[in-house]
Structures are given as structure tokens and as C-alpha cells.
């Protein structure tokens, strides 16, 4: 099975995030492979270990995004593709999806694995757009994937349980963190990643142009802060009042 995993380099979740003047996220801080993508890479590696095949990482970003690809290669992925072009700076979801689709189409994978949403942008729009552009069915929120010939049985997380969805390959799935615990890159893997290929592509190589932006950021507002709770002091009626609150919340 040929599997493509889309990976993104994002600011370290352990650092404080700041915004630039144009309301985009500052990327000066230490950057890492998106933790959500690590789960996708792990799932791809497990599928490869069980069924054979190849795992290819595809990323879009500045040249240093190679480090994020290299991290996935250290975990065991076979090779990487980095789409990098000054014209792609500040790309919106649609342009990102178009660029990724062009690079992925050339590979002709059986399965494309994406995170549900990126840690930094969190739009969650790239995977469905990508599926559409690839002409492949999309199954979102996958927490488990079983391979059955050329079909996949995907356990899809929902608010009150999970659905089992069958889908024919080639397909695209978005995965939740529940799908697989990412492995440590072994030290052998880190050394081996040195000699793995990372192909670099510019917009011209993909035969696409930047075009008009489909979305722009108009403005930002602070999220509403959570209201503080109610303090019930012990005065003899406290237990009844707590029970009433719990009953109202329908937890008892």
C-alpha cells in the first residue's frame, strides 16, 4: 500500500504563541512537527508494517520545514516531498490544498492520511478540499483503520460513539490522536534519515499558479472568557442545592 501523510511544521505547543502585525501566527519561535501529524505518521507506519508498501511525507512550507519531514523520516517513513516557493507565503487553505493535491496526484497513493486540523491554523479545511481535488472519498475523525483487500474499514469517532465506515481506495482519511501513539524516533532511525530523499518542488514544478486568495483574515477578537462558577457554601442546605445543580445539568 502506498501511503501519503501530509505533515506540517508548526510552532512548538510548549511555547507561547504570538501574532505578527498582519494577524498571522509568528513562526519565529521553535518549530516542531505538528503533534497531530505525528499520529498520522505512526498510523501509516503501522499500516506499512502490517501490509507492506511505502510511506511518503508531503509538506508545504519554508525550507526549514524539512526538519519536520526529517522527524517523520526518523520515525521510519521512506521519503519526503517539500513544496516550497516564496509565492506560497501566507497561502490560504485552498491554495495549500491545490499545491498538496498536485504533488500527491503525481505519486498516485492508495491512501492519504491527514491530521483532523493543524495545531496552529486549526481551520480543518485542507483535508476535505484535498480529497475533493484528488477525487477521492474522505472519511474524517478516524480512530482505527482496518485493511480489507482494496477496501478500508474505518472506525469514525462521533460525539456519542463511533461509526464503522467502509471505503474503497484510493481514499483520504483524517485521523484523531486516538489512532496511534507516536513512537520515538529511534537513534538508528535518526541516523538513517540522513540518507533518505526529500524532494523539493516549487509551484512551477506542480504546474499551478497562486491565483486569488479564497479567504483573508478581516480581524481578530479575543475569545470570551469562561464565566466563573457558583460557590455553594456549607450552611445546611448546601447538599440539596448541589443536588439541584447536578439534576439541572442532567448528570444525575
Amino acid at each position: 500500500m502506498k501511503i501519503v501523510v501530509t505533515v506540517k511544521q508548526v510552532p512548538d505547543p510548549n511555547s507561547n504563541l504570538t501574532l505578527e502585525a498582519d494577524n498571522t501566527l509568528s513562526r519565529e519561535k521553535e518549530v516542531v512537527l505538528d503533534p497531530g501529524d505525528e499520529c498520522g505518521v505512526e498510523e501509516a507506519l503501522q499500516l506499512k508494517e502490517a501490509h507492506g508498501g511505502e510511506v511518503i511525507l508531503v509538506s508545504m512550507g519554508p525550507e526549514r520545514a524539512k526538519d519536520a519531514i526529517r522527524k517523520g523520516l526518523s520515525m521510519g517513513a521512506d521519503r519526503g516531498i517539500l513544496i516550497t516557493d516564496p509565492q506560497l507565503a501566507g497561502a490560504d487553505a485552498l491554495l495549500t490544498a491545490r499545491a498538496l493535491a498536485a504533488a500527491i496526484k503525481a505519486e498516485g497513493p492508495d491512501l492519504v492520511i491527514c491530521g483532523t486540523e493543524s495545531y496552529d491554523g486549526s481551520t480543518g479545511m485542507v483535508p476535505p478540499m484535498l480529497a475533493e481535488l484528488l477525487g477521492a472519498p474522505q472519511v474524517s475523525f478516524a480512530k482505527k483503520v482496518e485493511v480489507d483487500g482494496s477496501n478500508l474499514k474505518v472506525h469514525r469517532q462521533t460525539a456519542d460513539g463511533y461509526q464503522v465506515v467502509e471505503v474503497a481506495t484510493p481514499a483520504l482519511i483524517t485521523v484523531t490522536a486516538a489512532i496511534a501513539e507516536p513512537r520515538y524516533a529511534s537513534l538508528k532511525g535518526i541516523m538513517a534519515a540522513r540518507s533518505k530523499e526529500i524532494k523539493q518542488l516549487a509551484l512551477g514544478d506542480l504546474g499551478i499558479e497562486r491565483g486569488e486568495a479564497a479567504e483573508t483574515i478581516e480581524g481578530l477578537a479575543e475569545a470570551e472568557t469562561r464565566k466563573s462558577g457558583v460557590v455553594i457554601e456549607f450552611d445546611g442546605t448546601a447538599i440539596d442545592r448541589i443536588m439541584a445543580v447536578l439534576a439541572e445539568a442532567k448528570v444525575i
Binding site: Y184, L187, I190, R194
Partner: peptide, 14 residues
């Protein structure tokens, strides 16, 4: 080197 950094970071996390 980038490998030495990656090894250090992996060992630090571990």
C-alpha cells in the same frame, strides 16, 4: 549537526 541535535532532543524527551 542536525543529527546530533535530533539525537539530543529525542534523548531529552525520552
Amino acid at each position: 549537526t542536525s543529527e546530533q541535535q535530533a539525537i539530543r532532543d529525542t534523548c531529552r524527551d525520552f
